[in-house]
Amino acid sequence: FKEKSRSVLREWYAHNPYPSPREKRELAEATGLTTTQVSNWFKNRRQRDR
């Protein structure tokens, strides 16, 4: 993950740790990642924050 992608994901996570499928698609387009990568990033981040 590039730093720019991570910062976008972190910003979204601060507002909503559970993005909808549509939001995940938008994030994937904005970051250049796949929706699976975005989903996994959020899943891992939520697990880490437990």
Rank of each mutant, 00 (worst) to 15 (best):
F1I: 14
F1T: 05
F1C: 06
F1H: 05
F1K: 11
F1E: 05
F1L: 08
K2W: 07
K2A: 03
K2P: 06
K2R: 05
K2H: 08
K2S: 14
K2I: 03
E3A: 06
E3Y: 12
E3T: 04
E3P: 03
E3V: 04
E3L: 06
E3C: 05
E3W: 03
E3G: 06
K4D: 15
K4V: 09
K4T: 13
K4A: 07
K4H: 10
K4N: 12
K4Y: 11
S5T: 13
S5M: 13
S5Q: 12
S5C: 04
S5E: 08
S5R: 06
S5P: 11
S5I: 15
S5V: 13
R6V: 15
R6Y: 10
R6I: 14
R6W: 12
R6K: 15
R6L: 14
R6T: 14
S7G: 12
S7I: 14
S7T: 13
S7R: 10
S7P: 06
S7K: 10
S7V: 13
V8F: 12
V8P: 04
V8N: 04
V8K: 10
L9A: 01
L9S: 00
L9F: 03
L9T: 00
L9N: 00
L9I: 02
R10F: 12
R10T: 11
R10Q: 07
R10E: 14
R10G: 10
R10S: 14
R10P: 06
R10I: 14
E11Y: 00
E11L: 02
E11M: 04
E11W: 01
E11G: 04
W12A: 09
W12P: 02
W12V: 09
W12Q: 06
W12Y: 10
W12L: 06
W12D: 04
W12E: 10
Y13D: 02
Y13S: 02
Y13R: 00
Y13N: 00
Y13L: 04
Y13P: 00
Y13M: 02
Y13E: 02
Y13T: 00
A14S: 13
A14F: 07
A14K: 09
A14M: 12
A14W: 03
A14I: 15
H15C: 11
H15L: 13
H15T: 15
H15G: 12
H15A: 13
N16V: 03
N16T: 15
N16H: 03
P17V: 11
P17Y: 04
P17I: 14
P17A: 15
P17M: 14
P17Q: 14
Y18F: 11
Y18H: 14
Y18M: 12
Y18Q: 08
P19E: 01
P19V: 03
P19A: 02
P19F: 01
P19G: 00
P19H: 02
P19Q: 01
S20H: 04
S20K: 06
S20Q: 04
S20W: 01
S20D: 15
S20V: 09
S20R: 04
S20M: 08
P21F: 12
P21G: 06
P21S: 05
P21A: 08
R22N: 15
R22E: 15
R22A: 15
R22M: 15
R22W: 14
R22S: 15
E23M: 02
E23T: 02
E23F: 00
E23Y: 03
E23I: 03
E23K: 04
K24W: 08
K24H: 15
K24R: 11
K24A: 11
K24Q: 13
K24E: 15
R25H: 14
R25N: 14
R25W: 10
R25Y: 14
R25K: 08
R25A: 15
R25S: 15
E26K: 02
E26M: 05
E26R: 03
E26H: 04
E26N: 02
L27K: 00
L27E: 00
L27Q: 02
L27H: 01
L27D: 00
L27A: 03
A28L: 01
A28V: 04
A28E: 05
A28F: 01
A28M: 08
A28I: 02
A28S: 13
A28D: 01
E29Q: 03
E29T: 03
E29F: 00
E29Y: 01
A30E: 14
A30R: 12
A30D: 10
A30W: 08
A30L: 12
T31S: 11
T31R: 00
T31L: 12
T31Y: 02
T31K: 00
G32P: 02
G32V: 01
G32Y: 05
G32I: 01
G32R: 09
G32S: 12
G32M: 05
L33H: 03
L33I: 08
T34I: 02
T34H: 05
T34R: 07
T34V: 03
T34M: 04
T34W: 02
T34K: 13
T34A: 11
T35I: 10
T35C: 11
T35M: 11
T35G: 12
T35P: 11
T35S: 14
T35K: 12
T35Y: 15
T36F: 08
T36N: 14
T36P: 10
T36A: 10
T36H: 14
T36M: 10
Q37D: 05
Q37M: 10
Q37K: 10
Q37F: 04
Q37R: 08
Q37G: 06
Q37S: 08
Q37P: 00
Q37I: 03
Q37H: 07
V38R: 00
V38P: 12
V38G: 04
V38W: 02
S39P: 01
S39Y: 05
S39R: 13
S39N: 11
S39G: 13
S39A: 07
S39W: 02
N40E: 09
N40A: 07
N40D: 06
N40M: 12
W41D: 04
W41N: 05
W41A: 01
W41F: 09
W41Q: 01
W41Y: 13
W41H: 03
W41T: 01
W41E: 03
F42A: 00
F42W: 02
F42R: 00
F42V: 00
F42I: 03
F42G: 02
F42M: 04
F42C: 02
F42E: 02
K43L: 08
K43P: 04
K43C: 10
K43R: 08
K43H: 09
K43T: 07
K43S: 11
K43I: 08
N44M: 11
N44L: 07
N44I: 05
N44Y: 07
N44T: 07
R45I: 06
R45V: 12
R45D: 03
R46W: 06
R46H: 04
R46E: 05
R46S: 05
R46V: 08
R46C: 06
R46A: 09
Q47Y: 06
Q47G: 10
Q47K: 10
Q47A: 10
Q47R: 15
Q47P: 03
Q47C: 09
R48I: 11
R48H: 12
R48S: 13
D49S: 04
D49V: 04
D49K: 03
D49E: 15
D49P: 01
R50T: 02
R50A: 06
R50Y: 13
R50D: 07
R50V: 02
